[in-house]
Design a protein around this nucleic acid. Sequence first.
RNA 1: GGGCUCGUGGUGUAGUUGGCCUAACAUGCCUCCCUGUCACGGAGGAGAUCGCCGGUUCGAAUCCGGUCGGGCCCGCCA
Length: 434
Amino acid sequence: MRVLASDLKKHMGKPVLLQGWLHKKRLLGGLTFIVLRDRSGLAQILVNEKSEVEKLRGMQAGTVLEISGVATADDRAPGGVEVHKVEIKVMVPVEHESPIEIDKPLSHASDNLDTLFDHRVIGLRNLQETKTFKIRSELTRFIREFLYKNDFVEINTPKLVAGAAEGGAEVFKLDYFGQEATLAQSPQLYKQIMVGVFERVFEIAPAFRAELSATTRHVSEVTMLDIEMGFIKDHNDVMNMVQDMVYNALTRVYAEYGDDLKLLKAPELVLTPEFPRYSMAEIHKMYSKATGKDTSKEIDLTPDEEKWICKYAKENDGSEAVFATNLPKSKMKFYHMANDDGTARSADLLFRGVEISTAPQREHRYENVVKQMEAAGIDPTSPGFSHFLLAFKHGLPPHGGCGFGIDRLTEKVLGFNNIKEAILFPRDINRLTP
RNA sequence: GGGCUCGUGGUGUAGUUGGCCUAACAUGCCUCCCUGUCACGGAGGAGAUCGCCGGUUCGAAUCCGGUCGGGCCCGCCA
């Protein structure tokens, strides 16, 4: 029976069999330390026999090993336990030198990201990188668990679609058995349709954006969390749900992975259960007053304003997450609901300087959706939209939801400067491999 | 798409007002020594025509032009 590195302590004094990768060799002459990596972490193995050490001559990091020995308590060993009386079996020999180091932190300097991604296949075995993606996995799990607890149903919607869901944004086009298809840039229309079925739905899936953006915040394949909930009282219900979900996921990840986050030099979490809310107009005014730069004519928040309001909220409200509410109507999508004062019932959630989510209330009245569609220059009878409208025709309650960037959330939790650092195999305007 | 910026052994860097560069340092790799390492330590070694092409010059990693490949910012957004 295989024993995992992290379970060695439970087998103190007993024979154990470990399987994993050679992570590090330290030869001290008469004795040799081997560090073995498996899915649970690292195990230290002490080898005395010359003949056993010889089996590892020429074997590089990554060599797949089976080690049998005895779990032995020793204060000098990391974690107080190591394996003695060892017999080594090389399962998969590796003689090629590792292209990138796996036992020390890799450079995440922006100039070096290209090398980091070129060597991603092996670089991900680096403990720091592995931890990053373990934390990403857990963040996603906490979000899922929160949503399940709140009666949301997880759905999967098509990524091969006939037309653009949101209009405006660039889409990838491809040949679909002779028809032109696009890669879905958002599950927007489908998740609204599903409100008519389950009331509360969510999806975690890729979305494809063909915009020629080259910034630290953009990739062309993004992992989106999409939420939609029906029978809301007002826009606040949507913001509250997103807020509670984020608060829950962040506090959990800091509680359960605090040590790893500290090791990865992630910032301390500063968060209140209620996130501060400022209207877009207020933020423009506050920012202009504080910096002397007039942004009152800006439609959206500038990247600098996003950073500024996050810093402001952290210092004055004790929260690194902040809502920018009442987004301008001119930016509104046809499926959003407008306020009477020229703003939209939409809010951006900002965290540590970037927008991680947009959480609007939807226009749920059939006639209004048709009107807003026509105003946006979309033909309501076109094949891509007639199905969508059918759901409204047959009854959709007041509803709202959010699009939420999992990549950006992970990036900011870990204190990275570039979204790609939080993605296993990022896709941007000039990277399609690995 | 617009602006700015960078390109030196496998990896990370130094050198960039031309000559002391026959390219330095760290790490990784190879050989040897080392019985408690944990970024082990010590001795030695291999490994780069300085992204590519052209130009200026007695002489170019260094200056100029072009080209290819990155990065950052803006616009747009998650």
